[in-house]
Amino acid sequence: MKDSMKPVSPLDTSSIPCTINGSEINLNVPPAKRLLSVLRDDLAMTGTKRSCDIGRCGACMVMVDGVPVNSCLTMAYQCTGKSITTIEGISASGMDPIQRAFLQEGGFQCGYCTPGMIISVKALLDHNPDPSALEIEEALSGNICRCTGYGGIKRAVQKAIEWRKEAYESITD
């Protein structure tokens, strides 16, 4: 029987190599386990938040190969060979300008949605450093804030864009 015609058993918990925040790792988990549960329960990386469990709220957002995905909808086997970045990875070498912008502009109240927001903004600006207002709205359409409203969040995104531009110009001058 070909290898591809053999199933990965739910008891086989050693077959998922991937990279998390720059570190190579073999996930010793059942293949259909949710990435959200892997991060929070198996790896104690609780910056990624659990909320709706059905991909609606964006609290569990992580980047997989540089694009945002809902970790509550992503299964462990779908991460094979992928590079995963969580909110812990964003700030590994100090606070990211996006995080500073959220602090300065009051882009949060309870803060529960904030890690997911930061991830979505990071993915957007890494891909498109100068997005339009419509592009920002589309990029954040999968992130829901239920306490502070979106005014501060939009200001934070604009501030982050501004700071990233300044940082880029200071390097290239």
């Binding site: 259909a32 909320s51 086997y77």
Partner: peptide
Amino acid sequence: MAANAQGVAEAPFVWHPRSAAEAWQLK
């Protein structure tokens, strides 16, 4: 929050066919 969110099984076998013919045969 989904009512049974904590209770969903995570135990299925996962097959990784390499061709459409393999996938169809598995089905």
